[in-house]
Design a protein around this nucleic acid. Structure first.
Length: 278
DNA sequence: ATTAGACCCTGATCGC
DNA sequence: TGCGATCAGGGTCTAA
């Protein structure tokens, strides 16, 4: 389900629901309920319970992870493919509701994840840089660390299809299967171009395209392809803006050629054979 | 050290 | 209507 725009949208939605962030409301984690012992990995119930009673700081995002921070440690969450949070008001639980957390302001959240590719883990204080889930992550795509020189220096050491490489979270985080295809279309580069064949100028163009596509998707609340919902239940409206993803056999919006698709690295990949050059 | 492929799991959809 | 095959926005592990 979620790439950077969807995870960031979820993050902002949760802070809004809880009234965290701008205003200074003091919210204490009051309790947790574990409906399953494990999803993708074991949920460390004892460690997580240690932050009950702590003040919740504003929820933030690192790569495709959500962090619910307190001064005594944090809850770390990855949405996997089908994970989502919603506000919980005491109604009967849904299938695949795995974890609930409630707060001193009367609010509660529930985490649902049908495929259980998501993660719920404990992050000890000040250990973000060395945490097992976070330590291999590359730069944030919307930061100035992600620039043409950085990308060029990384790509020249890599081989393989460019599209697969820009989805590598060790290089740059947050770019997943939809926005990889979309960014390459915007940059007019073929997904099967060999990664180490990009010159600095093309890297500059690709960096700009990745930032632009992620920013625009974020501004629309992400993309709902099948089941993504914002924390408040709203759709992600960027799906209608997609130029190549999911449009195999349809007409290119720029040149009227037929959009092609192929499985690369196990993931469906879409491009315009005329607009995008190897 | 990199890279391609299998694998984790459930649900929706498609073709027969 | 039913049933199997296929596919899905994630990442990890293994083998080459």
């Amino acid at each position: 389900m979620p790439e950077l725009p969807e995870v960031e949208t979820m993050c902002r939605g949760l802070n809004k629901i809880l009234n965290l962030g701008k205003n200074k409301e003091r919210i204490i984690i009051e309790g947790m309920e574990f409906k399953r012992g494990n999803i993708r990995s074991k949920i460390p119930q004892k460690q997580l319970r240690s932050i009950i009673g702590q003040k919740l700081l504003p929820i933030r995002r690192r790569a495709k992870y959500l962090i619910f921070p307190t001064e005594m440690g944090s809850l770390l969450n990855h949405l996997g493919m089908t994970g989502y949070w919603r506000e919980y008001n005491g109604e009967p639980l849904l299938k695949h509701d795995h974890f609930l957390i409630n707060f001193s302001n009367g609010k509660a959240l529930v985490f649902n994840d049908a495929r259980r590719f998501g993660v719920i883990d404990y992050l000890s204080p000040q250990s973000e840089a060395s945490n097992i889930w976070l330590k291999h992550l590359g730069v944030e795509p919307l930061s100035t660390d992600f620039n043409a020189e950085y990308l060029f220096n990384k790509l020249k050491k890599r081989s393989g299809f460019l599209k697969n490489i820009i989805m590598d979270q060790k290089l740059v985080v947050g770019v997943g299967n939809i926005y990889a295809s979309e960014a390459l279309f915007l940059a007019k580069v073929h997904p099967k171009k060999n990664a180490n064949k990009l010159n600095l100028k093309m890297c500059q163009s690709l960096v700009i395209s990745i930032k632009e596509i992620l920013k625009k998707a974020l501004a629309s609340g992400g993309s709902t392809i099948r089941d993504f919902r914002q924390a408040g239940g709203e759709l992600g409206y960027f799906a209608r803006e997609l130029k190549v993803y999911g449009r195999s056999g349809q007409v290119c919006t720029a040149c009227a050629s037929t959009i092609k698709s192929e499985i690369l690295g196990g993931r469906s990949t879409f491009w315009c054979p005329k607009c995008q050059k190897k």
